[in-house]
Nucleic acid binder design. Structure first.
Lengths: 208, 208
DNA sequence: GTCTATACCATGATAGAC
DNA sequence: GTCTATCATGGTATAGAC
């Protein structure tokens, strides 16, 4: 199954053991992503991850050498999912609508419990991520793609010319982990769609 | 000195010991506020607070029964400072400009290292705060004052009529702990004034 | 009320059997 | 590679002398 789903692989022949290992590691990363989104890096414990996956804590350390490395793997997976979404956007759409789609997708993902709020923390995780070339490469790819969209949207008159590209970029990123979403959800006065609409509207009106 | 600065007190006569105690507790709360802003509740340790104040850790527990209670005291002080600022706003100013002043003040305070980023965490601190009547009362006072300003600004045409008051309120609150500030500061491409201007502009344009 | 010293516990990480 | 059992660290909170 893994074989047929990856026909482009140069080494398609994976033993049953290897396949099992991949499945297990995916399960670990998924559980990590959920817990990371729910509690953040510091409050997430390795015991919880192990319990969620259903394995012993020591087994985690056979797959990932440290808590930071595990979280980094989860963050990389998240980045790759984001990249896949951005690359799959319809090219004939207006750039500003593509940007809105990205934010909408991020907010929906977060509501489903799959997007860790990563502020600019001074934690050990940050250092690990900055030293991870794979993470940095993915991040630079994403920044480049988003930067192109932003400049196209500005050329189309949808973004104010006085706002630098990086300011717009950071603003959109920050909106994806905006605590306003949690506040409004706690209120229970608006449904999920309305909450997302409020966030997208106030964000992009502010950039226009 | 404490005596003369509080002439309205019903029990003005404070012994030297009592004055000293107040000064000490203020120092503790100030140090807590700084560390809270710098590292957040979870990463802040009681050892650090004690070291910053210059007393033994055990002495902290003579003043505050727990880490949560200490943080709550700091949060209350912050709320009271905010209330004092809002109450001191020039009443003849347009409501929208008063709101902008509040956000500007909050962002300046945060840049000086005095405003803890308090997301809607699932931590023990949240429960403590919700059970603290003094905190809750101050928070309700602030919400009411800000709510009045928002409705006045809407009546004056500065805020979009389709945006509910609580959505506007949460959006402004969220902007005061926006990670965009940290990102742009790390860039070092813009000075502090420019960064604050970007945040205020994009925020209130989005609400218009 | 402040100090030194310590109890107690949660958690990240590891050893060693299977 | 997975498990049980354990270590080491660091952090909250407290005891007891002064």
């Amino acid at each position: 199954m893994e074989y047929f789903s990856q026909p482009m692989s140069t080494e398609p022949k994976l033993s049953f053991k290897q396949q099992q290992l991949i499945v297990r590691e995916n399960a670990i990363v998924d559980a990590t992503n959920q817990l990371l989104a729910k509690k953040g890096f510091d409050l997430m414990t390795m015991d919880e991850v192990a319990a969620e996956v259903g394995i012993a804590k020591a087994s985690l350390y056979k797959h990932f050498p440290s808590k930071e490395a595990l979280a980094a793997a989860a963050m990389i997976q998240l980045l790759e999912n984001t990249l896949a979404f951005v690359r799959g956007l319809p090219a004939d759409q207006a750039a500003i609508d593509q940007l809105k789609s990205v934010l909408q997708w991020a907010l929906l993902t977060r509501m489903k419990g799959g997007l860790p709020t990563l502020p600019a923390e001074n934690t050990s995780l940050r250092e690990t991520l900055l030293n991870n070339t794979r993470y940095i490469n993915r991040l630079m790819d994403l920044n480049e793609l988003m930067g192109e969209l932003i400049e196209k949207a500005r050329a189309e008159g949808a973004i104010h010319k006085d706002l630098p590209t990086d300011v717009v970029l950071f603003t959109i990123y920050a909106r994806s982990c905006d605590p306003t979403l949690d506040y409004l959800r706690m209120n229970e006065q608006y449904n999920e769609e309305q909450v997302i609409d409020f966030l997208i509207t106030t964000c992009f009106n502010g950039l226009h």
